[in-house]
Design a protein around this nucleic acid. Sequence first.
DNA 1: TGATAAACTTAGGATCGAACCT
DNA 2: AGGTTCGATCCTAAGTTTATCA
Length: 850
Amino acid sequence: MTVSSADEDTPLSQLNTSPAKLKDQHAPYFSDNDSDDDDDDMPLANVSNFAKKRNAALAQISDDEYEDSERSEDSANGVKKEEDDDYNEDDEDVPLSQRSTTSNNSNSNGTVKSETLVKQAAKKRKVKTENGKTVAKTTAKKTANGKKTTAKKPTAAAAAKKATANGKTKTKAASKKVKKEEEEAVKKEEEEEEEEEATYKWWEQNDLDGEIKWETLEHNGVVFPPDYEPLPKNVKLIYDGKRVTLPPEAEEVAGFFGAMVETDHAKNPVFQKNFFNDFKQVLKESGGCPDADITEFEKCDFSEMFAHFEKVREAKKAISPQEKKRLKKEKDEFEEKYKYCYLNGRKEQVGNFRIEPPGLFRGRGAHPKTGKLKRRVPPENVIINIGKEAAVPEPPAGHQWAEVRHDNNVAWLAMWRENIMNSVKYVRFAQNSSLKGISDFKKFEKARELKKYIGAIREDYRKKLKSELMIDRQIAVATYLIDVFALRAGGEKSDEEADTVGCCSLRYEHIFLKKPNKVVFDFLGKDSIRFYQEVEVDKQVFKNLRIFKKPPKKPGDDLFDRLDPSILNKYFQSYLTGLTAKVFRTYNASKVMQEQLNLIPNEGTVNEKVVKFNAANRAVAILCNHQRTVSKTHETGVQKISEKIEEMVVQRIRLKRMMCQLDDKLRRKKAKKEYFAELKSMTKKQEVDIVKRAISKEHERIMARFKRDQEKLKYEKQDSHLSKAEYNEKLKQLKEDHKERLEKQKAAGQVTLAEAKKQEYEIKSNLTVEKLEQQVEKLDQRINNTMLQKQDKEDNSSVALGTSKMNYIDPRLTVMFSKKFDVPIEKLFTKTLRDKFAWAIESADADWEF
DNA sequence: TGATAAACTTAGGATCGAACCT
DNA sequence: AGGTTCGATCCTAAGTTTATCA
């Protein structure tokens, strides 16, 4: 994180403190010792020199300028004027008069690229200045890292084969164990047979570049959702108290809503309005309702429909396991041909081969179009992309494809346009496909390349923070935010979408400034996930943010009024081709992961190591603001664990008391002071309450089981079930027992502390202090584990680890961890992820570094 | 060359199904 | 064995970036 330049106004430490702060509050695995391992041997001397020079020239005005801006904060100056005042005073290279009228006066260091930037910015708001900046052309050095290690690795299938062979030669003398291993190997091999056939180790190829995506492509098209089946006659929409019949087209739409009346969506007025408008439209298109003129949403009663769908759901659940299995098999067989395709002759998986079924659009957050009808997609709207030589899949009988295309520059098999946002949906290759793998690999290699430039980028933006050009300051601050807080680029959105923002689209109201350098971010990001952070930022960043918020800017206005992602990305490309805002997220995520993993000691059980790995993963997820809504069951789940811990603690206390009872000198031993301290940690009442609660829980379990067993016996018409009288008698008895036990505890709770101390336990004759000690030790272990479990649950309640594991953390880091720490990769990657990241699993070893 | 469309990645929630716990 | 819990997978929305076109 450290930037190597020394700048008196804004010391290095500033840049360091904020991320460190952020880290501290969230994750235990960040080190304070933020050692600098950034690569600073930048090939960008020109940039730096120029920036340095200009900065030196401007150094003394920049503070004044800040003061000016503070003083004139509530002045009635127009924005343009104000900014001219701020930035255009002292420029030895380009006179003010010229700057405000021409954009084409480059100095000796200027390049075309920077002019383009300025021009682009001018589009967003008139800004007429000149920006000189030299771009050092940097060749993307391709890292051949992966290849180095791959060759020596046998494939999984080959390994299995080898194991089999070994097994065979040894069988003679062999133990059952070997035989079993052999069987497993064979089985494994069989399982992987298909895979073997499909496995193409693209990562062992040299040439991954090239704009063409495939040479030949064969596939079987797409699967359409089943046609609509009208509801049974006894299920109707009730309108204004009357059961009405709808044309099937309209009934289907009503049914979509009817199925979700109990959800939050259905209670959302926007959703209701959008649904109802589209419903009325479909009703009109399909001939209207003969029984009533349906005009008011409030008069619609979907309860019959809802009940019907509930029933269907129950029925589905109730299907016998065998039947379920059969249906599943049937489905799989039907889908088999769609699931796979042939890319350059090799079998590869298709991802989403199903055309999305019609339904009500479930937009996230406050989406203006939520609830609108997402219409059924006819084959006539579907474009097929397939190899020239391949057989074109047949459209459903009586239908046509919209078009059949042979475009090998793209990586989709079919596409259609949806009617909500009028955007395009694609059928693509699966995550484990070579094309996806290649682009993943390239993504992470690009992020690793950024390592080499990040030092210079940071150095530059720290200087640019004081630039006399508004656009440069905005670029600098935006880059800072993207780099340090992992913000997304933040493209412009239409008002037909939810109002969410990223860096470039941040508005006045999304940040609050607190002197001297605190910033509170509060806005909705992608998927309307709230980004809330109170952080300290670089002083100059703070000053600039103040300037960006200066009147006449007001709520609703863009903070970065000169910026959009394309301007920013063009700037990034001047360092490294292909460098865009999102690369910073990948880079910082993987960097953090690497650092976190480096802090983990190689000790403890596999499970303990997995827990630590997850903690590192969590640090990354927090950096990326990956959240999930806390589940409804979370609170009770935590409560349950807490109770379990309490109960174990009480048990431990009692064991220790027994020890004292066996040997009453024990308690007074100095060395044991701490050991017995917890005997006083609870009041008698607390202890008794916990025990009573445990008793009650146990009682509930017993009762439930008894009742269930009886029900079952009765249902199976077994004679053994109790008669009504017997049943009640037994029930009564159970209740009595429970009551009695509670009473006993109550009595115990009423004794004074002094009395309690004297209270004696019944101790079995063979029980010794040593045995008790062992029990306590075991209990300690269990309590510890449970507490860890609880902590983990709490920490993860609102953090989603999956997204970063899937998209941001270089999988080779995970593989490195797996190998270095002897943690089976299965503990870290699910089956899906192992397939997706097969390239990483085979190419990284224990000392791989991001 | 700038606006827009297309193409591709990233994202959280719903649903499914296996493991776990009585 | 049955219910519950939890992780994995499915689904598709929502971003970013690149390509295209007037």
